[in-house]
Design a binder for these strands. Structure first.
Lengths: 255, 255
DNA sequence: CTTGACCCTGACGCTGCGTCAACCCTGGAC
DNA sequence: GTCCAGGGTTGACGCAGCGTCAGGGTCAAG
């Protein structure tokens, strides 16, 4: 007669595993000897080996009991189901690997290539790290739930950057953002540049940029993001309203 | 300001998940409003999206905090480690799939092809279902820890079956095993056949079969298996000893 | 008699939340 | 004002398959 340790050793499992199988009713509890030790015969070794063999094939413990008692048809069904589960799990992990490879490839963990490209352009024209991070967060917000608008929006933004006035705007914004958060002296300057750009675009009939985006995109949330990162944003919005433009991320004529 | 439900909806996760991230310190707890509700700003949405993006790539939550704060080098190391983990897990599952396919292919869940072939031969010569299962369990025991002895042992057994006396022995054993477990009338007949076969093999200088197997194989355990399946086995061992042979699974001369 | 190696039960830990329970708060309809 | 649905709050258990203490008792050898 074997002790639990010997049984476990024969089957190549841990003592804890054997007790676990007892607990869940997968392996019947054997007789006890005078001192309360479990005593096993050879049949228990065979049963345990069967359990481990099937478990090693990826079958959940809860189904092993049924499988070992099943006839050929039931067994085939069960095997097919298990195999499907395994395949799905493998595919899930494969997808994970691809995604993590993408994350590792880009310098940003969470953004697609076109957005990081746009951010790189901003860095090239002298936008500060601080502002870049703000921009990036805004794009993260949009990319998460409305990725289909990203290519068009990025294309529009890149076109904007060909206009020297936009480049100047970003540089001024960058300088101000990096300065004292309480210093509001240059806000009118910024508002003037922005209003000028918008007025010209409006006059040229381009409409506002937001038209191509749907109303479902939460511009107020992105505005809030900007306001959280710099306390002067609300004041700037006020100045823009004075100049006939309402909003921040998406600006519209106040008629 | 967003409620927890709105935050969760923006990021595409459940409310419970958000609370979980708070609990493990992955997402900082926000301010509460007058009635104790959590109130989130846009920054929380961004933080949550970052978390989910990395988590969806298979990174365990416990490491996401570090990853999002890591520099490029640390990040590359972390990504490589995660990727290795994923690869290993995938390989494990692939092995599981192969094994389960094998299990499904054979009629037996736990034995290799050569053993099932041997068992099929036994069935062909008329061995009963009951005895087959006993044989099978014995082979399971050996195959589990000493698989390297299986091919040789099976080959020897198949050779044995070419001897009509062995075939006769198995048939008689089969009949007796299927009969009343208390009926000991045919035990001497069995013992005579076995002793005859062994004596002839010994005289022919073949030695005992067990010599090719190592002493580490637990013959007593397999003997015990036989004894558990039929109470007459001990009596049969006794009869064999009277005829000069000791043991059951492996029989040796008592000199 | 001690010592080390086993055995016993009971319980918590891990992962990433899902799913109650029991209760409070809010906003719109009546 | 009142009602109700549909939010929110904390606290707790559950899931798979054991690992790993804690705090005992037992066995075999020196």
């Amino acid at each position: 007669m074997l002790t639990i340790g010997q049984l476990a050793a024969y089957a190549g499992v841990t003592v804890r595993a054997v007790r676990h199988y007892h607990q869940i009713g997968l392996l019947p509890e054997p007789e006890r000897d005078a001192s309360g030790y479990r005593r096993y015969g050879a049949a228990a070794v065979v049963a345990l080996i069967k359990i481990r063999t099937v478990a090693d094939a990826g079958v959940p413990l809860s189904q092993i009991g049924l499988m070992l008692r099943a006839d050929a048809d039931t067994l085939a069904d069960a095997v097919e189901k298990i195999d499907n589960d395994l395949r799905e799990e493998i595919e899930r992990l494969e997808r994970s690997r691809k995604r993590i490879a993408q994350l590792a490839a880009g310098d940003s963990l969470v953004l697609s290539a076109d957005v990081t490209c746009y951010l790189d352009r901003l860095r090239e024209i002298g936008v500060s790290q601080r502002m870049l991070e703000g921009e990036r967060d805004g794009w993260i917000l949009i990319a998460a739930r409305w990725p289909e608008y990203i290519p068009g929006a990025i294309a529009a933004k890149l076109t904007e950057l060909e206009n020297p006035q936009f480049v100047r705007l970003y540089r001024v914004l960058s300088e101000v953002a990096d300065g004292d958060p309480a210093d509001e002296s240059r806000l009118p300057e910024i508002a003037d540049i922005m209003a000028g750009l918008l007025d010209r675009a409006y006059a040229a009939g381009e409409g506002d940029l937001g038209e191509t985006w749907r109303d479902e995109v939460p511009f107020d949330l992105i505005d809030n993001l900007a306001a959280e990162s710099d306390p002067r944003v609300p004041r700037l919005v006020e100045l823009m309203r004075e100049r006939g433009w309402d909003g921040w991320t998406r600006l519209r004529r106040t008629d």
